[in-house]
């Protein structure tokens, strides 16, 4: 069972295939090169941390991966399909079913209670009301919020809010979870709780990509991609000793 090489290569099918992507933002006279040529291949059930200094293009890359933004040049294949060829409705469908977003600022609807927030992606997927409530409730129980179904976001702690957001990202059973600094607004203890939730998801077979600039957080991932000035600086798989030490803790 134990591999003799110093790291474990992922073996699942490729879900994200980014080739030499660039992204420019035009700011009046000036052009900002947010990404200058990034290539990234992600297999199913990988757990990736994207790191890098502020302004290095992490969020830009995440938005690209999440089909929220389109590259200036380069090719993006999602599950073998060229994203550039999809129309707005297809992109919306992918965001709805294949991708689960978790934001740094939670982005919950303030007037809707926990349950309704989590039901939202199911509404867009056309799920009937009973199944919707059932699945949202189950997902909330899974993230440990079974007793907070009817609370409004402002009646929850930061960690609880992020759990709601995670439940919302999971409820449509997407193949990929994208989290842009999910612990950025949380204290370190709550952050660890959230990270153990991601660990669970990973173990259950989810593909996870998260952006962070905290090494402690990135340590949970099996692969770390470092960005600097819109380019990939390094792309490291976790070594076996590291894996072993993780298993011990």
């Amino acid at each position: 069972m134990m591999d003799t090489r110093d790291s474990i290569r992922p073996v699942g099918p490729v879900v994200i295939d980014i080739e030499n992507i660039t992204k420019d933002y035009v700011m009046g006279e000036e052009i900002v090169h947010a990404l200058r040529g990034v290539s990234l291949r992600v297999h199913r059930n990988e757990y990736i941390a994207i790191m890098g200094p502020s302004g290095s293009g992490k969020s830009t890359l995440m938005n690209m991966v999440g089909c929220l933004d389109t590259p200036t040049s380069g090719r993006y294949g999602f599950n073998g399909r060229n994203v550039a060829e999809m129309d707005d409705d297809e992109l919306a469908a992918i965001r709805n079913r294949e991708i689960g977003f978790v934001f740094q600022t939670f982005n919950l609807l303030p007037r809707a209670n926990t349950l309704r927030n989590v039901e939202l992606p199911l509404i867009y997927a056309g799920v009937d009301p009973e199944t919707r409530e059932e699945r949202a409730t189950q997902t909330l129980i899974d993230v440990g919020l079974g007793d907070r179904l009817h609370h409004k976001p402002n009646e929850l702690s930061g960690g609880q809010r992020q759990r709601v957001a995670i439940a919302r990202a999971l409820v449509n059973r997407p193949s990929i979870i994208l989290a842009d600094e999910p612990t950025g607004n949380l204290d370190s203890k709550t952050g660890e709780e959230i990270m153990s939730l991601f660990e669970d998801l990973y173990r259950r077979g989810n593909t996870i990509i998260l952006v962070t600039h905290e090494a402690d957080i990135a340590r949970h991932a099996r692969r770390t991609v470092r960005l600097r000035d819109g380019l990939i600086e390094s792309d490291d798989l976790m070594t076996v000793p590291e894996l072993e030490s993780m298993a011990l803790t």
């Binding site: 409705d89 919306a92 469908a93 079913r97 977003f101 992606p121 867009y124």
Partner: peptide
């Protein structure tokens, strides 16, 4: 506006 962005990220289409 931010809510609209969130909804779109969760799969809301334009017509939604």
């Amino acid at each position: 506006t931010k809510e609209i962005g969130t909804r779109k990220a969760l799969g809301a289409r334009r017509r939604t």
